[in-house]
Design a protein around this nucleic acid. Sequence first.
RNA 1: GGCCCCAUCGUCUAGUGGUUAGGAUCCAUGGUUUUCAUCCAUGUUACCGGAGUUCAAGUCUCCGUGGGGUCACCA
Length: 463
Amino acid sequence: MVVTRFAPSPTGYLHIGGLRTALFSYLWAKKNGGKFVLRIEDTDKARNSEAAAIGIVEAFKWLGLEHDGEITYQSQRDDIYKTYIDQLLDEGKAYKCYMSKEELDRLRESQMAKKERTRYEGKYRDFSGEIPEGAEFVIRIKSPESGEIIVKDGIKGDVVFNVKDILDDFIIARSDGSPTYNFVVAIDDALMGINEVIRGDDHLSNTPKQIVVYEALGFTIPMFYHVPMIHNSDGKKLSKRDGATDVMDYKKQGYTPQSLLNFLVRLGWSHGDQEIFSFEEMIELFDPKDINKSASIYNTEKLNWLSAHYIKNTSNAELSKLLEEYGLILSSHDKAEILLDEMKDRSTTLVAMKENIDEILKVPTEYDEKASKKAFKEGWSEVLNNFLTKLESAQELHLPNDYHKLMEEVVEEMEIGFGKIGMPLRVAMIGKMGGPGLDSIMAILGKAESIKRLKKCIGTQRG
RNA sequence: GGCCCCAUCGUCUAGUGGUUAGGAUCCAUGGUUUUCAUCCAUGUUACCGGAGUUCAAGUCUCCGUGGGGUCACCA
């Protein structure tokens, strides 16, 4: 069974890059009928916050990415790590190192002066001399001193590291006894049965260290997939300064989970020429072997297109439910269907859609200058008055077509073009150019409101 | 700097030795529309450079160049 995981450290919100690797992990697990588990890497007490952990879980909930089983918190597993540290100590695969931070710093400085790679040289690796009086110690693992470590990676292929280029006896437990990242990651992944690790390729150079731990403990090494980074428009690793990278900000901005997920799944992954993927299709079609090897640049053009696409293709019932989350209640509006039909082709996000709807529904407080110039030309008030008369005497006015007929009558009787009535009428109704068809607008507003706006316009505009 | 990864339109990408290098987005133009949007059509734009292998290279090899990542008692 395929078991994948997402293992964020709760130092902040869930960002778009993390979400993408989580999505990939989720899809791959589900495609194989396996499990997707969540582990919170909260061993750094100084930088963690509980609120961040809650926020991350909340984001997953919004997106519908459910994790399997209980969430694992590393902070609650100290005993487990301690057991393995003791085991390695007993087996002579790890040892206590009494080198002080100052001594280490000095070592590093002299190595840098000689332009050598900075590394711990194993002073206490097989130490039999006198232990410094009252010295603190860290625990270091015995790394291999020569040879190669090969990371089998499903995206990059086999990545070969030469041990003497990259390894030393790295610390697995700090002087306060707490275990370090590369040590606990390997243990947790192994113990949690994770056999396919999908993560950002900024972890690729950590992987040899983790393999050292796997091997020391006799654990099975999982399959790795190191997903290329998402870069900002400067070509750098995406950071918190690059705008709305908090996943929950996308909700605030009116993007739906569906469009965000579709956007992310196509960033670095593809399935031929297909652009639109339902959640079910993603699960069915996703395969990490189709992940691109190169980094991609984050750019919201496509997200906006997807968002608009999904809004257009969402039912009105669903749309009005979604819109309620943004404070727009349409359930009491008798022409909500027409309103939604007209607006869904004109909005890229739910927030924009709400704003567009608000603009139609609220009485215009002023008439756009440019639009007025075009609209209020010779004879406009006569046209509108004629239309007003017809409007007031009309009996059954419900659908856009009912209003359209009235406009047609005016046009025919006065022998004018449609623009002659369309322009001033539009400005009277919504105060500016653009927007849905006038017949629809009036049907949405209703007879009384339409008359009100018409009279206000005729009364206030000169010409 | 050491090590590692990467390199096709502005952007997301297809492409696994023989293609007019395809799709999407963006942009522009035209059509539809009383306006706007949608929709439809059309168009501009790409294989980082140099060697090599081969009858044939975007595709394989090498060397450059460029970009990125990583080198902690952070994760």
